[in-house]
Design a protein around this nucleic acid. Structure first.
Lengths: 202, 202
DNA sequence: CACCAATCGTACCGATCGGTAACGAGGTCA
DNA sequence: TGACCTCGTTACCGATCGGTACGATTGGTG
């Protein structure tokens, strides 16, 4: 059952790569350190010398997820330079397609925040920092759009994003994720038209 | 450290009540059966006689969460009988306020689906069944609204709901959850006006 | 009283959890 | 050569995991 892949990588790198895959697919709480080192072809002391503890390994894994996650924004920005609205729609379009694939497991950082609700946990801290960064990025885009209430628009879009993460892994291929691009477009346009007062009542 | 509350309840009931609280607050994977029975003032054989396994206890806990979750729809419906739009807005308004309270832990069913990604897990099954029921309920409301694309609107609203669940527990009291009512209103109105074609491109 | 069924607790199981002590192989630079 | 440092190895730790065999207790019924 052991994979034992030397593949030119150092033990610490193999451990991290294996942890990335297993933590994301199965959840950090579901995977023990023994399984990680076994499938990485390494041993536990290598893990603990390189990462200190399982919690810190989780944090290292999440830092990788954070970079991967932010890259999606960069890609969308590169596709439509100077056009914030097109950037956002490209981002949501790609997100909806990713989330509709079978076996989708959502956002590793959101999942970790759910698995470790304690704000003092290293993994939870990384997740919160990342979500704050995403929120800021969305606000920048909302401002560039010319939205009347950029913070409100950014938060609304963030709700859609997190909703896709969860529903994408609960429902199969034909879940609500496919509606996210249209929903984002509707929210964006609503924030560019009238004074964003919610509605008659309230 | 033991609570030992006889409080007239049978062991099985105390165990379930304790499990509800601990599973929701800390996560099902984080809580062991020993801690549950200890704080319930019971013992493990009582747990296993009444529920069979920890997984089935999780499923029982989630069935309770399911009822609690659906009750929020009933409350909103009771407040504004015959007015689907007002029902939805009341639901989202209450949801946003719940999710902005400190210590909010989101939806136990969504959390369980994240903690147990295996579709064969009893807890995951309950979560999927519940989400499907919510989706259906939102579709009914969207149809009652007169939305042009009720399924799309329902899925968009479901994205907002799940987004609130996650962001509510990641961000503190001033998270994106406060924007959910306005976002829902914008999506609803967008689905009642123009032909819901997303936008020029695509 | 004797009997029985239901309910509960004591004590234990093997497996796995995260983490560590101690040792050995190999490279580098003096 | 030898001291040093890095890396990986075997073997082990106490604690906790989910789960169970078996006995004690209880209340109702003949």
């Amino acid at each position: 059952m052991s994979a034992a892949k030397p593949e030119n990588l150092k033990a610490a790198d193999r451990i991290l790569a294996t942890a990335q895959e297993l933590f994301y697919r199965e959840g950090a709480r579901a995977i023990g350190v023994d399984e990680i080192v076994q499938r990485a072809g390494a041993t536990k002391p290598s893990l603990y010398r390189a990462f200190g503890s399982k919690d810190q390994l989780i944090a290292a894994y999440l830092e990788g997820e954070r970079a991967r996650s932010m890259a999606y924004f960069d890609e969308a920005a590169a596709e439509h330079p100077g056009d914030a609205r097109a950037q956002l729609l490209a981002y949501f379009d790609a997100l909806g397609r990713r989330a509709s694939r079978d076996g989708y497991r959502g956002c590793g950082l959101s999942n970790a925040a759910v698995e470790y609700p304690d704000p003092k946990h290293p993994g939870h801290k990384v997740a919160l920092a990342h979500k704050t960064e995403v929120r800021e990025r969305l606000r920048d885009l909302a401002r560039a759009l010319g939205a009347r209430k950029p913070k409100k628009l950014a938060d609304s879009l963030l709700l859609l994003i997190e909703g896709v993460y969860v529903t994408g892994q609960v429902f199969g291929g034909d879940g609500p994720a496919k509606a996210v691009r249209g929903a984002a477009a509707a929210l964006i346009d609503a924030h560019r038209a009238e004074p964003a007062g919610d509605e008659p009542e309230a």
